[in-house]
């Protein structure tokens, strides 16, 4: 009886150790993969149209979802913000509330989450299917490096698109807040803009937001291409990889956001 519990405990510890080891191994593989992408980037930039094509697919084609979500989130912020602020008689601060929450947090984070589910998942699916149908192996056979030809352009396409999409998200969100706050509810237009301009700092708020979205872009793109490249080459394997891309991207974005925020906005 006693030896039974003992061996059960040993088994539990072993299972934990195996999980940690597997996670560390994957992390190490992903880091080496990241370095490889950077090493082959020069080679892939020589054929720049590959990257431009990926900017089209992950950036331009995400425009609609980013713009529509940004507009709606800005409008909701305008309504909810007004509802709370007018209780304290400071509804003129609505512009500050909308602009600061968008440029600092919502713009980078929500657009990165949307980007991960819209573009990240499709990158994973594409690379995973290429691997499952042995296209990557075929390229290797023809002395075409699959990292330089397939992976690096998708990675850089995501990295370039992400900050632009986040800036668009914030800009259209502020416009949405303006629509609801000023046009619909009737907050004073001059106070709305001037208080906003007085409180939003270019370096502290806007540049930091862009830095955030750049970091999210690197993280999401890396996770997407890595999960595709690492996929088990079967239908179930590709589907599991896509699921992991979305889940890990969301977790990475939110965790990185906490870390970056605590560095950027400490003591303010």
């Amino acid at each position: 009886m006693r030896s039974g519990t003992f061996s059960c405990a040993i088994e539990l510890v072993r299972a934990l150790g195996r999980r940690v080891n597997d996670a560390l191994q994957t992390l190490g593989f992903a880091s080496r993969f990241f370095v490889t992408i950077l090493a082959y980037s020069g080679q892939s930039f020589r054929r720049l149209h590959l990257t431009i094509r990926e900017i089209y697919f992950s950036g331009f084609q995400s425009l609609v979802i980013i713009l529509v979500s940004g507009l709606f989130i800005g409008m909701v912020l305008g309504m909810q913000g007004y509802e709370t602020l007018q209780r304290y008689g400071s509804s003129e601060a609505l512009g500050v509330l909308v602009a600061l929450s968008l440029t600092r947090e919502l713009g980078p984070v929500v657009s990165a989450l949307l980007f991960a589910s819209r573009a990240g998942s499709s990158i994973t699916a594409e690379i995973g299917l290429m691997k499952a149908t042995e296209q990557l192996t075929a390229m290797d056979m023809m002395a075409v490096n699959p990292i330089a030809r397939v992976v690096a352009p998708r990675f850089w396409g995501g990295v370039v698109s992400m900050p632009l999409l986040a800036a668009l998200f914030s800009a259209i969100g502020v416009f949405g807040g303006y629509l609801v706050g000023v046009v619909l509810i009737g907050v004073d237009e001059g106070a709305f803009w001037s208080q906003m301009q007085g409180s939003v700092d270019f370096h502290l708020d806007i540049v930091n937001g862009i830095v955030k979205s750049f970091v999210f872009g690197v993280a999401v793109s890396l996770i997407a291409v890595f999960e595709g490249y690492d996929a088990v080459p079967t239908a179930e394997g590709v589907s599991a990889s896509i699921k992991r891309t979305v889940v890990y991207s969301a977790l990475a974005i939110l965790a990185l956001d906490l870390v970056l925020t605590s560095f950027m906005f400490r003591g303010i």
């Binding site: 425009l63 440029t103 632009l164 906003m196 301009q197 270019f202 806007i206």
Partner: peptide, 16 residues
């Protein structure tokens, strides 16, 4: 369009 958004944020929202 992306750069225009950054410009909008810098000039209209942030007022450099």
């Amino acid at each position: 369009v992306g750069f225009a958004a950054v410009l909008f944020l810098a000039l209209r929202v942030g007022n450099v």
